[in-house]
């Protein structure tokens, strides 16, 4: 395959940045999207140019490091797929591919396609935890959890915190990420003691980090590589409403 890549290049956080065009030949359809970028970077390195910086780690779709808005869609055109698990066979020979970083004030660009996602850490630090007594692990089934709740909590817990929801949201909102953690912990008995303070603190941290407000467009869930459902946001809203009532 031969491809025309238009990639966002930005030297550092202060640089203005722009889209730069690269021609790439001999791309195998079996390559992952990141391997394709590796090939480009090898060539750029040999040519003495600065390789394209992009985030990646496990390359098996579970770490949440890879990002990239590919042709306008976070993680590319495949449903429930991270960029590292996206293969070049989903593109056509001679295609033009636009590659941009996540665009959000809360996720400033560090370099090229790498963004700083520490705003998510701030949201988690605000309430995405449970208080548990230390010591040996409790007996299995010491606190019974209905199977349906356990499954729903697990589904929400599969969030890898990649930030695709923010990248896709027309409002730049991080509500799906926040809601995934609220849902995960709110469904478990261990999550109940902090349930009310958690939702208030996490929403405050979310807003302070500069994320936008949710208007329920559903863009987030459709690009989420883990398919976190929009229902989690309704659950967050319900918890928020109940927390406000309990506080007043």
């Amino acid at each position: 395959m031969s491809l025309k890549l238009r990639i966002w290049r930005q030297a550092d956080a202060q640089d203005k940045g722009s889209m730069v065009t690269y021609q790439l030949q001999n791309v195998s359809p079996d390559m992952s999207f990141l391997e394709m970028l590796d090939v480009l970077n090898e060539r750029l390195t040999l040519d003495g140019e600065d390789p394209v910086a992009f985030d990646h780690d496990c390359r098996e779709g579970i770490c949440g490091m890879c990002s990239l808005v590919i042709n306008g869609i976070p993680h590319g055109p495949e449903k429930a797929t991270t960029t590292c698990q996206l293969h070049m066979r989903h593109f056509t020979d001679g295609q033009t591919i636009d590659i941009e970083p996540w665009r959000a004030a809360a996720f400033p660009v560090v370099k090229d396609l790498v963004v700083d996602r520490r705003a998510f850490d701030k949201i988690i630090q605000a309430g995405g935890y449970i208080s548990a007594p230390t010591g040996s692990a409790p007996d299995a089934h010491a606190s019974p959890v209905p199977k349906a709740d356990a499954d729903a909590a697990f589904e929400a817990a599969t969030c890898i915190g990649c930030g695709a929801c923010v990248a896709a949201c027309p409002n730049g909102s991080g509500m799906l990420f926040t809601a995934a953690k609220i849902t995960h912990l709110g469904l478990m008995p261990q999550g109940q003691p902090e349930r009310h303070t958690r939702v208030i603190d996490m929403i405050n941290a979310h807003d302070e980090a500069g994320f936008g407000g949710c208007t329920n467009t559903g863009e987030c869930t459709s690009v989420c590589p883990k398919g976190i459902p929009l229902e989690t946001i309704a659950r967050l809203n319900k918890d928020y409403r109940q927390a406000l009532r309990a506080a007043s």
Binding site: F211, T217, G218, T221, V223
Partner: peptide
């Protein structure tokens, strides 16, 4: 929303 995305996408496609 405006403040949350100061730099716009060059290529933006609504998915859902």
């Amino acid at each position: 929303a405006r403040k949350a995305r100061p730099v716009k996408y060059a290529h933006r496609k609504p998915v859902q």
